[in-house]
Design a protein around this nucleic acid. Sequence first.
DNA 1: ATATCCAAACTGGTTAACCAATTTACCAAA
DNA 2: TTTGGTAAATTGGTTAACCAGTTTGGATAT
Lengths: 241, 241
Amino acid sequence: MKLEILTKNENREIEDEIISKIRDLINYKNLEPGDKLPAERVLSEKFGVSRSSVRSAIQKLEFYGILYSKPQSGTFISNIGQIAMNGMIEDILSLGEHDFKSLVETRILLELKIVKMAALRRTEEDLERIRQALSAYKVKMINGEPCVEEDLLFHLAIASACKNTTMNTLMLLITPEIIVAYQEDRVCEGDVALAQIKQHEDIYMAIRDQDPQLAKEKMKLHFTKLYDYIYGENRKKVIKG
Amino acid sequence: MKLEILTKNENREIEDEIISKIRDLINYKNLEPGDKLPAERVLSEKFGVSRSSVRSAIQKLEFYGILYSKPQSGTFISNIGQIAMNGMIEDILSLGEHDFKSLVETRILLELKIVKMAALRRTEEDLERIRQALSAYKVKMINGEPCVEEDLLFHLAIASACKNTTMNTLMLLITPEIIVAYQEDRVCEGDVALAQIKQHEDIYMAIRDQDPQLAKEKMKLHFTKLYDYIYGENRKKVIKG
DNA sequence: ATATCCAAACTGGTTAACCAATTTACCAAA
DNA sequence: TTTGGTAAATTGGTTAACCAGTTTGGATAT
């Protein structure tokens, strides 16, 4: 277990080091957007690392849109300026794990917007999918079983209905971390369970009726509860009041 | 060029197909969170694809938090339930490129929140970084040079100051696409340039004075201009009025 | 002098062999 | 039966060889 962390850190450090070296190379050689990076083999030799390490570093920069690779041709610098590139690489290097508070803050921000858009743009298929997710959630909830997954699936179904590809992707990205953070089998009981179900049903009905403002209000209500749970007294296994 | 697209599509299709097969395998074998996936070699043979293809698919699922790999041990299913996993994989498979409108919508949503948080939490170092970005932006702007990069660096500096790791990461993710979409060398002239600079300065000063509400207002002003530019008449190379 | 063409070198992508660490299975000793 | 240790098998990660296009540079014909 300890080793795993070490390995990950090591790998990360190696990857980041290569990224840093690539940045230095671009700066030193004054490469501009569209210019070709040295070949992977050359870089691996110059940096004294394996070619696959270089490749993984390049792929990461490619993912962030800073580089792009053309097969049988080379790797090129994207059409963003040198200054912007430097700043972004610095940010990429310095970004670490997400703290739970920032995750929840972001989720709330996203979903208050998403639910409005979903209310306006949802199709019948979206509605049916949301309804099914809600149904699965209710079953678990009533039986007193853990239902974090079903809860978040409900919200993901809404995100899918909002027809904003970017926001949907971002929700997909941050959702797993939230699920894991919640994973300790938290359940609700009695009145609270019923209240939670009602909140979800209210959201669903607002979307069904295509009332964006009401949907946002109901989502806000849903989140005030969540906010209390996050920032309130120490987290409890069972919410009773 | 055509080939590049084909190659990418092909790759993507292969990767998605493998992801789909992995999902089916998990469902068929009823694997639960924490269970170990078959070894990469086994999967590559079973699916009739190369091991590196399996690896890239696994890495993608790892990025989305659905799987995690332990060196010399195996690949395991993350601590999210089977139902949630299935829904998320379906979403991942269906998500494509981001349309420009959704990118801008998301950016605006994020930044209106970010700028408030930045005003509250910025350190002196953050402020200095923002100031420098603003300075670089002004120089280009006054000289009538393209300054999209400097503009977005200014905004990224603000994002970095908001101290929300998740939002900062998301900004880093969506920013390059925006830059590229804007890249056609757009410049402002005369009064418009001065107005743009003033908008930025207003935002900077609000952050400096730690006035979140004012910062948000100024950012909103900045974005109404942007919104017009996006949704208004056909995009122009030079904004004059 | 210029345009055309072809082969050799170079490219990123792919495949297969290799490595070190971990897990597993088994056997001997208590 | 339980325990300890050891060696073989299995793992994800790494490296090196290979492949199919692309680019390039110069030889050749016009």
